[in-house]
């Protein structure tokens, strides 16, 4: 059974349906991409998974348990961590304070300290800037910080919302390397991304969303080769 199972999920904003009954799954250890154009309903889907929007129908199961209407502050205790769109780092706190805030739900101090060092090993850039205020970091560094902060809660599933947004192309490349690295360490990741090519290059499978529905689902390689995807999302 998959770690994350979404069945017939419907989400709306005051009567307007943004997600019209979609289903997908993410297996343990997998990196799955959810791609689609602006307004396709990707972020809405993720917000519903993260407990920030209440779905109007369908179900979400995590590790066999329903998390359909679990509020976001409880979700992280069950092992689902969200890296929000636009990063959402605490701009006036230092890098280190941001990371420790990620471990808010944990009370094993020694473990948190060890994980802090682990993050600094994973992101040497952040180590250099550990005492610096997060607001003074570049967009890419902030994105690394947001990912590191989410990992500090020791999640079993990482939800990434548009990690490439607003970043310079070189930085985007770097962030995707980081995501790939985290995935190789065994983390299960659901990646929501507009940059279809990059997302499919790191992911093993992908789902394509269009006007609130999933129109294609396949292995990344197959999607990258599909004429439909090539035309609509890869600009070929």
């Amino acid at each position: 059974m998959a770690l994350l199972e979404v069945r017939d999920l419907k989400v709306g904003y005051g009567g307007i349906a943004a997600v019209r009954g979609i289903g997908f799954e993410v297996a343990q250890g997998e990196l799955v991409a959810l791609i689609g154009a602006n307004g396709a309903g990707k972020t809405t889907t993720l917000k519903a998974l993260a407990g920030m929007l209440v779905p109007s129908g369908g179900s979400v199961h995590f590790d066999g348990k329903s998390i359909t209407r679990t509020p976001s502050h409880q979700l992280i205790r069950q092992g689902v961590a969200l890296v929000p769109e636009g990063r959402g780092v605490f701009t006036r706190l230092t890098v280190e304070e941001n990371l420790s805030m990620g471990a808010y739900i944990r009370d094993d101090r020694a473990g948190v300290r060890a994980d802090l060092e682990r993050m600094f090993g994973l992101f040497p850039r952040l180590k250099e800037r550990r005492a610096q205020v997060a607001g003074t970091l570049s967009g890419g560094e902030q994105q690394m910080l947001a990912i590191g902060r989410a990992l500090m809660s020791r999640p079993r599933l990482l939800l990434l919302d548009e990690p490439s947004m607003g970043l310079a192309p070189l930085m985007v490349q770097k962030i995707f390397e980081v995501i790939q690295g985290v995935s190789k360490e065994g983390m299960t990741i659901l990646l929501v991304e507009q940059n279809a090519r990059l997302a499919l290059e790191v992911a093993s499978r992908g789902y394509v969303m269009e006007s609130g529905e999933i129109t294609l689902a396949d292995d990344s390689a197959a999607l990258l080769a599909s004429p439909q995807v090539r035309q609509a999302y890869l600009g070929e």
């Binding site: 780092v89 605490f90 739900i105």
Partner: peptide, 13 residues
């Protein structure tokens, strides 16, 4: 600092 992020950290805002 950021209410949405605080919620994502597991804080019952």
């Amino acid at each position: 600092e950021d209410e949405t992020a605080a919620q994502a950290m597991g804080i019952n805002t």
